[in-house]
Design a protein around this nucleic acid. Structure first.
Lengths: 142, 142
DNA sequence: CTTGACGTTTACGTTAACGTAAACTTAGTC
DNA sequence: GACTAAGTTTACGTTAACGTAAACGTCAAG
């Protein structure tokens, strides 16, 4: 009943390359069994990989993921593991929301710059525009 | 009337390091005059630098910025330059909005994962939860 | 037998935007 | 003349997450 997977089984299933999976193993995110040289992945390994990929999707770095996985291996009733993971998720959530703020501000700035360019395109007088903005455009070349 | 600036003048004014300014020069974003070895920046150089930094703020890479600046140097009446720049800005704006979509999706996924962890924290039965989600948490260790 | 598919390890390459250190010159001041 | 501050060039280091290539092992099919 305990299914096994080859490295390319998992690679194709998750849409990644074998190189990536070995890279994760090098960084202690996975530790599959061996049949001689060949890596044999259990269902638990598969679950770990799925966890790693989802954590990556939500913006965690591999070292942060490693921390959470280490914690999982240490904590026998997994209460502390869940707790720490939850804290990390909350902090990450704050980071992401801060990123969204920055991104929105960037979009706003770029939008108004587009507006300005469109006005110039429409043949406005550059002198009538805010002086700070198109300084480079109005500055003469030597 | 044509003011001049030293490299540290501009560095302090814009809150960057001299190294950064030299780096930009290495990549043909700036081309200041020289007094022997020393770099002398004109007001046009200062305008270019301001332009570079603003373009960076709105998410352009240095090579994209270089393209726009090259265009500026080529286009004598600057009509084409503005036009191409406007196109690049619109495309960049699309990229940023697509990034925001991804970011929002990530935030959603992470939020619901937080919810799940909170339920576990509150002492729910793991078996009652969606099986796909906490697969790794419920999977036993060998 | 040999070809091909799959696996392995080792190790250097990639990208962006600089940081950092070494070793030197130039200008101004005490 | 010595010291200090600021400047210069050259060149290697940094970070993340792999890609890519070399050189080799293994096993089943034709």
């Amino acid at each position: 009943m305990s299914e096994h997977y080859s490295i390319s089984d998992l690679a194709t299933e998750f849409g990644i390359t074998p190189r990536t999976i070995r890279f994760y193993e090098d960084h202690d995110l996975l530790a599959p069994e061996r049949d001689g040289q060949r890596r044999i992945y259990s269902r638990r390994d598969r679950g770990r990989l799925a966890w790693v990929l989802r954590a990556k999707r939500v913006g965690f770095s591999l070292s942060e993921i490693a921390d959470m996985l280490d914690l999982y291996d240490l904590d026998d009733d997994r209460a502390q593991q869940r707790h720490v993971t939850l804290e990390m998720c909350r902090k990450q959530l704050q980071d992401l929301e801060s990123q969204r703020h920055d991104l929105d501000a960037t979009i706003d700035e770029l939008s108004s710059f587009c507006d300005l360019l469109e006005k110039l395109e429409a043949g406005q007088d550059p002198a009538s525009l805010k002086p700070s903005f198109p300084a480079f455009f109005t500055e003469p070349r030597p």
